[in-house]
Protein backbone atom coordinates (compact mmCIF):
# COMPACT_ATOMS: atom_id res chain seq x y z
CA UNK A 1 0.00 0.00 0.00
CA UNK A 2 2.84 2.36 0.88
CA UNK A 3 4.55 1.53 -2.39
CA UNK A 4 1.33 2.22 -4.26
CA UNK A 5 0.91 5.56 -2.50
CA UNK A 6 4.49 6.55 -3.30
CA UNK A 7 3.94 5.47 -6.88
CA UNK A 8 0.86 7.68 -7.18
CA UNK A 9 2.80 10.56 -5.59
CA UNK A 10 5.42 10.24 -8.32
CA UNK A 11 2.65 10.37 -10.94
CA UNK A 12 1.22 13.47 -9.29
CA UNK A 13 4.51 15.40 -9.33
CA UNK A 14 4.57 16.23 -13.08
CA UNK A 15 0.88 17.08 -12.89
CA UNK A 16 1.59 19.52 -10.05
CA UNK A 17 4.48 21.11 -11.95
CA UNK A 18 2.25 21.34 -15.03
CA UNK A 19 -0.36 23.09 -12.89
CA UNK A 20 2.18 25.69 -11.78
CA UNK A 21 3.23 26.33 -15.40
CA UNK A 22 -0.38 26.72 -16.54
CA UNK A 23 -1.18 28.98 -13.55
CA UNK A 24 1.78 31.18 -14.31
CA UNK A 25 1.18 31.37 -18.06
CA UNK A 26 -2.56 31.93 -17.76
CA UNK A 27 -2.18 35.06 -15.70
CA UNK A 28 0.71 36.42 -17.76
CA UNK A 29 -0.91 36.04 -21.18
CA UNK A 30 -4.09 37.83 -20.15
CA UNK A 31 -4.20 41.45 -21.34
CA UNK A 32 -3.59 44.29 -18.91
CA UNK A 33 -0.80 45.64 -16.82
CA UNK A 34 0.19 43.88 -13.58
CA UNK A 35 0.91 47.25 -12.00
CA UNK A 36 -2.63 48.50 -12.53
CA UNK A 37 -3.38 47.59 -8.93
CA UNK A 38 -0.88 50.01 -7.50
CA UNK A 39 -0.29 52.79 -9.97
CA UNK A 40 -2.67 55.69 -10.46
CA UNK A 41 -4.20 55.85 -13.92
CA UNK A 42 -2.11 58.84 -14.94
CA UNK A 43 1.24 57.46 -13.80
CA UNK A 44 3.89 58.28 -16.37
CA UNK A 45 5.46 55.59 -18.53
CA UNK A 46 8.79 56.29 -16.82
CA UNK A 47 7.35 55.57 -13.38
CA UNK A 48 5.66 52.44 -14.72
CA UNK A 49 9.02 51.15 -15.94
CA UNK A 50 10.60 51.94 -12.55
CA UNK A 51 7.85 50.04 -10.73
CA UNK A 52 8.07 47.10 -13.15
CA UNK A 53 11.74 46.83 -12.27
CA UNK A 54 10.99 47.17 -8.54
CA UNK A 55 8.50 44.27 -8.69
CA UNK A 56 10.62 42.15 -11.06
CA UNK A 57 8.14 42.30 -13.94
CA UNK A 58 10.88 43.54 -16.27
CA UNK A 59 12.62 40.13 -16.23
CA UNK A 60 12.01 37.54 -18.97
CA UNK A 61 9.01 35.26 -18.30
CA UNK A 62 11.07 32.07 -17.74
CA UNK A 63 13.16 33.89 -15.12
CA UNK A 64 10.02 35.24 -13.44
CA UNK A 65 8.55 31.71 -13.44
CA UNK A 66 11.70 30.17 -12.00
CA UNK A 67 11.85 32.75 -9.19
CA UNK A 68 8.18 32.30 -8.39
CA UNK A 69 8.39 28.48 -8.51
CA UNK A 70 11.40 28.46 -6.21
CA UNK A 71 9.50 30.53 -3.67
CA UNK A 72 6.42 28.32 -4.00
CA UNK A 73 8.58 25.25 -3.29
CA UNK A 74 9.53 26.95 -0.03
CA UNK A 75 5.90 27.59 0.83
CA UNK A 76 6.02 31.28 -0.05
CA UNK A 77 3.32 32.38 -2.48
CA UNK A 78 4.57 35.95 -2.30
CA UNK A 79 2.68 39.07 -1.34
CA UNK A 80 -0.32 40.63 -3.01
CA UNK A 81 0.73 43.59 -5.16
CA UNK A 82 -2.40 45.51 -4.26
CA UNK A 83 -2.36 45.03 -0.51
CA UNK A 84 1.12 43.79 0.36
CA UNK A 85 -0.46 41.04 2.46
CA UNK A 86 0.91 37.47 2.17
CA UNK A 87 -0.98 35.60 -0.55
CA UNK A 88 -1.04 32.36 1.46
CA UNK A 89 -2.85 34.04 4.37
CA UNK A 90 -5.38 35.67 2.04
CA UNK A 91 -6.08 32.47 0.10
CA UNK A 92 -6.39 30.21 3.14
CA UNK A 93 -8.83 32.60 4.80
CA UNK A 94 -10.89 32.74 1.62
CA UNK A 95 -10.83 28.97 1.13
CA UNK A 96 -12.08 28.51 4.70
CA UNK A 97 -15.04 30.79 3.96
CA UNK A 98 -15.77 28.99 0.70
CA UNK A 99 -15.59 25.66 2.53
CA UNK A 100 -18.21 26.83 5.03
CA UNK A 101 -20.50 28.07 2.27
CA UNK A 102 -20.02 25.02 0.03
CA UNK A 103 -20.65 22.61 2.91
CA UNK A 104 -23.92 24.27 3.89
CA UNK A 105 -24.98 24.53 0.23
CA UNK A 106 -24.19 20.86 -0.38
CA UNK A 107 -26.16 19.81 2.69
CA UNK A 108 -29.18 21.77 1.51
CA UNK A 109 -28.75 20.46 -2.04
CA UNK A 110 -28.33 16.87 -0.85
CA UNK A 111 -31.35 16.97 1.47
CA UNK A 112 -33.73 18.38 -1.11
CA UNK A 113 -32.10 16.62 -4.07
CA UNK A 114 -32.47 13.17 -2.54
CA UNK A 115 -36.00 13.98 -1.35
CA UNK A 116 -37.12 15.06 -4.82
CA UNK A 117 -35.16 12.23 -6.45
CA UNK A 118 -36.71 9.51 -4.29
CA UNK A 119 -40.20 10.93 -4.64
CA UNK A 120 -39.87 11.26 -8.41
CA UNK A 121 -38.29 7.83 -8.82
CA UNK A 122 -40.70 6.05 -6.53
CA UNK A 123 -43.83 7.63 -7.97
CA UNK A 124 -42.58 7.63 -11.54
CA UNK A 125 -44.87 9.24 -14.11
CA UNK A 126 -47.24 10.54 -11.42
CA UNK A 127 -47.84 14.27 -10.91
CA UNK A 128 -45.41 14.11 -7.97
CA UNK A 129 -42.70 12.86 -10.34
CA UNK A 130 -43.47 15.65 -12.79
CA UNK A 131 -43.38 18.28 -10.07
CA UNK A 132 -40.13 17.01 -8.54
CA UNK A 133 -38.54 16.62 -11.98
CA UNK A 134 -39.62 20.13 -12.93
CA UNK A 135 -37.99 21.55 -9.80
CA UNK A 136 -34.77 19.62 -10.38
CA UNK A 137 -34.55 20.64 -14.06
CA UNK A 138 -35.19 24.21 -12.98
CA UNK A 139 -32.37 23.86 -10.45
CA UNK A 140 -29.77 22.99 -13.07
CA UNK A 141 -31.14 25.43 -15.66
CA UNK A 142 -31.66 28.70 -13.79
CA UNK A 143 -28.60 30.99 -13.84
CA UNK A 144 -27.68 30.99 -10.17
CA UNK A 145 -26.40 34.57 -10.06
CA UNK A 146 -29.82 35.68 -11.36
CA UNK A 147 -31.55 33.59 -8.71
CA UNK A 148 -29.24 35.16 -6.11
CA UNK A 149 -30.26 38.66 -7.15
CA UNK A 150 -33.94 37.74 -7.07
CA UNK A 151 -33.60 36.20 -3.60
CA UNK A 152 -31.79 39.33 -2.35
CA UNK A 153 -34.45 41.61 -3.77
CA UNK A 154 -37.28 39.57 -2.22
CA UNK A 155 -35.88 38.44 1.12
CA UNK A 156 -33.48 41.28 1.91
CA UNK A 157 -34.58 44.44 0.09
CA UNK A 158 -38.37 43.89 0.12
CA UNK A 159 -39.11 41.77 3.19
CA UNK A 160 -36.00 42.66 5.19
CA UNK A 161 -35.80 39.18 6.70
CA UNK A 162 -32.21 38.36 5.81
CA UNK A 163 -29.03 40.37 5.24
CA UNK A 164 -28.19 40.76 1.55
CA UNK A 165 -24.40 40.65 1.67
CA UNK A 166 -21.40 39.78 3.81
CA UNK A 167 -20.44 36.86 5.98
CA UNK A 168 -21.48 38.08 9.41
CA UNK A 169 -22.26 41.12 11.50
CA UNK A 170 -18.53 41.78 11.98
CA UNK A 171 -17.23 40.21 8.79
CA UNK A 172 -15.89 36.70 8.46
CA UNK A 173 -12.96 37.14 10.86
CA UNK A 174 -14.63 35.34 13.73
CA UNK A 175 -17.25 33.29 11.90
CA UNK A 176 -19.12 30.83 14.10
CA UNK A 177 -22.28 28.81 13.59
CA UNK A 178 -24.60 30.93 15.72
CA UNK A 179 -27.90 32.51 14.71
CA UNK A 180 -26.31 35.92 13.97
CA UNK A 181 -23.87 34.41 11.47
CA UNK A 182 -26.16 31.75 10.04
CA UNK A 183 -28.59 34.46 8.90
CA UNK A 184 -25.87 35.66 6.53
CA UNK A 185 -25.26 32.28 4.97
CA UNK A 186 -28.87 31.39 4.15
CA UNK A 187 -29.29 33.32 0.89
CA UNK A 188 -25.90 32.48 -0.69
CA UNK A 189 -26.14 28.84 0.42
CA UNK A 190 -29.66 28.41 -0.96
CA UNK A 191 -28.57 30.02 -4.24
CA UNK A 192 -25.52 27.81 -4.44
CA UNK A 193 -27.50 24.67 -3.56
CA UNK A 194 -29.82 24.70 -6.57
CA UNK A 195 -27.31 23.10 -8.94
CA UNK A 196 -26.30 20.19 -6.65
CA UNK A 197 -29.96 19.78 -5.77
CA UNK A 198 -30.89 19.41 -9.43
CA UNK A 199 -28.00 17.07 -10.21
CA UNK A 200 -28.58 14.86 -7.16
CA UNK A 201 -32.35 14.74 -7.75
CA UNK A 202 -31.94 13.64 -11.37
CA UNK A 203 -29.32 11.03 -10.44
CA UNK A 204 -31.37 9.61 -7.59
CA UNK A 205 -34.54 9.53 -9.69
CA UNK A 206 -32.81 7.43 -12.35
CA UNK A 207 -31.19 5.25 -9.70
CA UNK A 208 -34.45 4.57 -7.84
CA UNK A 209 -36.19 3.69 -11.11
CA UNK A 210 -33.36 1.28 -11.91
CA UNK A 211 -33.39 -0.33 -8.47
CA UNK A 212 -37.16 -0.71 -8.48
CA UNK A 213 -36.97 -2.70 -11.70
CA UNK A 214 -34.50 -5.21 -10.26
CA UNK A 215 -35.44 -8.75 -9.31
CA UNK A 216 -34.70 -8.44 -5.61
CA UNK A 217 -37.42 -5.80 -5.26
CA UNK A 218 -39.90 -8.20 -6.88
CA UNK A 219 -38.70 -10.87 -4.45
CA UNK A 220 -39.18 -8.56 -1.45
CA UNK A 221 -42.69 -7.74 -2.56
CA UNK A 222 -43.42 -11.42 -3.25
CA UNK A 223 -42.32 -12.18 0.31
CA UNK A 224 -45.04 -9.78 1.45
CA UNK A 225 -42.81 -6.94 2.63
CA UNK A 226 -44.60 -3.65 3.20
CA UNK A 227 -44.03 -0.82 0.74
CA UNK A 228 -42.22 1.11 3.47
CA UNK A 229 -39.88 -1.84 3.96
CA UNK A 230 -39.23 -2.00 0.19
CA UNK A 231 -38.61 1.76 0.20
CA UNK A 232 -36.00 1.34 2.93
CA UNK A 233 -34.18 -1.26 0.81
CA UNK A 234 -34.25 1.09 -2.17
CA UNK A 235 -32.82 3.91 -0.06
CA UNK A 236 -30.07 1.65 1.24
CA UNK A 237 -29.11 0.64 -2.28
CA UNK A 238 -29.24 4.17 -3.70
CA UNK A 239 -27.42 5.89 -0.85
CA UNK A 240 -23.78 5.11 -1.84
CA UNK A 241 -24.20 6.52 -5.34
CA UNK A 242 -26.08 9.57 -4.03
CA UNK A 243 -23.30 10.17 -1.51
CA UNK A 244 -20.66 9.84 -4.22
CA UNK A 245 -22.48 12.41 -6.35
CA UNK A 246 -22.76 14.67 -3.31
CA UNK A 247 -19.01 14.39 -2.77
CA UNK A 248 -18.38 15.37 -6.39
CA UNK A 249 -20.71 18.33 -6.06
CA UNK A 250 -18.98 19.46 -2.88
CA UNK A 251 -15.67 19.33 -4.73
CA UNK A 252 -17.18 21.34 -7.56
CA UNK A 253 -18.54 24.00 -5.19
CA UNK A 254 -15.24 24.20 -3.34
CA UNK A 255 -13.75 25.51 -6.56
CA UNK A 256 -15.61 28.62 -5.54
CA UNK A 257 -18.39 30.35 -7.35
CA UNK A 258 -17.18 33.72 -8.52
CA UNK A 259 -20.64 34.94 -9.44
CA UNK A 260 -22.46 33.91 -6.26
CA UNK A 261 -19.72 35.10 -3.95
CA UNK A 262 -19.58 38.43 -5.79
CA UNK A 263 -23.35 38.95 -5.71
CA UNK A 264 -23.40 38.28 -1.96
CA UNK A 265 -19.95 39.81 -1.19
CA UNK A 266 -19.13 36.46 0.44
CA UNK A 267 -15.39 36.62 1.18
CA UNK A 268 -14.48 33.26 -0.31
CA UNK A 269 -12.06 32.11 -2.97
CA UNK A 270 -14.38 33.15 -5.82
CA UNK A 271 -14.69 36.67 -4.43
CA UNK A 272 -10.93 36.81 -4.01
CA UNK A 273 -10.34 35.60 -7.57
CA UNK A 274 -12.74 38.24 -8.85
CA UNK A 275 -10.85 40.97 -6.99
CA UNK A 276 -7.49 39.61 -8.15
CA UNK A 277 -8.62 39.49 -11.79
CA UNK A 278 -9.98 43.03 -11.82
CA UNK A 279 -6.92 44.42 -10.06
CA UNK A 280 -4.50 42.38 -12.19
CA UNK A 281 -2.97 41.30 -8.90
CA UNK A 282 -0.77 38.59 -10.41
CA UNK A 283 0.73 37.05 -7.24
CA UNK A 284 -2.72 36.80 -5.69
CA UNK A 285 -4.25 35.41 -8.86
CA UNK A 286 -1.49 32.84 -9.32
CA UNK A 287 -1.60 31.86 -5.66
CA UNK A 288 -5.37 31.42 -5.57
CA UNK A 289 -5.52 29.36 -8.76
CA UNK A 290 -2.55 27.29 -7.64
CA UNK A 291 -4.02 26.48 -4.23
CA UNK A 292 -7.39 25.55 -5.73
CA UNK A 293 -5.78 23.47 -8.46
CA UNK A 294 -3.49 21.71 -6.00
CA UNK A 295 -6.49 21.05 -3.81
CA UNK A 296 -8.06 19.08 -6.67
CA UNK A 297 -4.80 17.30 -7.46
CA UNK A 298 -4.50 16.19 -3.84
CA UNK A 299 -8.18 15.27 -3.70
CA UNK A 300 -7.76 13.00 -6.70
CA UNK A 301 -4.68 11.45 -5.11
CA UNK A 302 -6.60 10.81 -1.88
CA UNK A 303 -9.50 9.26 -3.82
CA UNK A 304 -7.11 7.02 -5.77
CA UNK A 305 -5.46 5.81 -2.59
CA UNK A 306 -8.75 5.35 -0.73
CA UNK A 307 -10.38 3.48 -3.59
CA UNK A 308 -7.43 1.13 -3.72
CA UNK A 309 -7.60 0.60 0.01
CA UNK A 310 -11.29 -0.27 -0.25
CA UNK A 311 -11.06 -2.34 -3.43
CA UNK A 312 -7.59 -3.84 -4.06
CA UNK A 313 -8.66 -4.96 -7.57
CA UNK A 314 -8.16 -1.34 -8.73
CA UNK A 315 -4.49 -1.55 -7.77
CA UNK A 316 -4.00 -4.47 -10.13
CA UNK A 317 -5.63 -2.50 -12.92
Amino acid sequence: MLAFTLNRLIYVTPVAIGVTVVCFLLVHITPGDPLTAILPADATLELQEQMKAAYGFDKPLPVQYALWFWKVLHGDLGNSIATGRPVATEVLRAVKNTLILATVATMIGFTFGTLFGFVAGYFRDSWLDKLASFISVLGVSVPHYWLGMVLVIVFAAQLGWLPPTGAGPDGSGDWRPDAAHLRYIILPAVTMSVIPMGVIARTVRALVGDILSQDFVEALRAKGMSEFGVFRHVVTNAAPTALAVMGLQLGYLLGGSILIETVFSWPGSGFLLNAAIFQRDLPLLQGTILILAMFFVMLNLAVDVLQTALDPRIKRG
Binding site: V152, A156, P164, S265
Partner: peptide, 18 residues
Amino acid sequence: LIPMPEALSRTNALLAGQ
Protein backbone atom coordinates in the same frame (compact mmCIF):
# COMPACT_ATOMS: atom_id res chain seq x y z
CA LEU B 1 -16.39 51.05 6.01
CA ILE B 2 -17.69 48.03 4.10
CA PRO B 3 -16.41 47.43 0.52
CA MET B 4 -19.32 46.64 -1.81
CA PRO B 5 -18.10 46.96 -5.40
CA GLU B 6 -21.42 45.95 -6.99
CA ALA B 7 -23.83 48.90 -7.23
CA LEU B 8 -26.88 46.67 -6.89
CA SER B 9 -25.46 44.87 -3.84
CA ARG B 10 -24.76 48.24 -2.20
CA THR B 11 -28.24 49.46 -2.95
CA ASN B 12 -29.83 46.29 -1.58
CA ALA B 13 -27.69 46.53 1.54
CA LEU B 14 -29.02 50.04 2.13
CA LEU B 15 -32.62 49.00 1.53
CA ALA B 16 -32.19 46.06 3.91
CA GLY B 17 -30.74 48.31 6.64
CA GLN B 18 -27.36 46.60 6.57
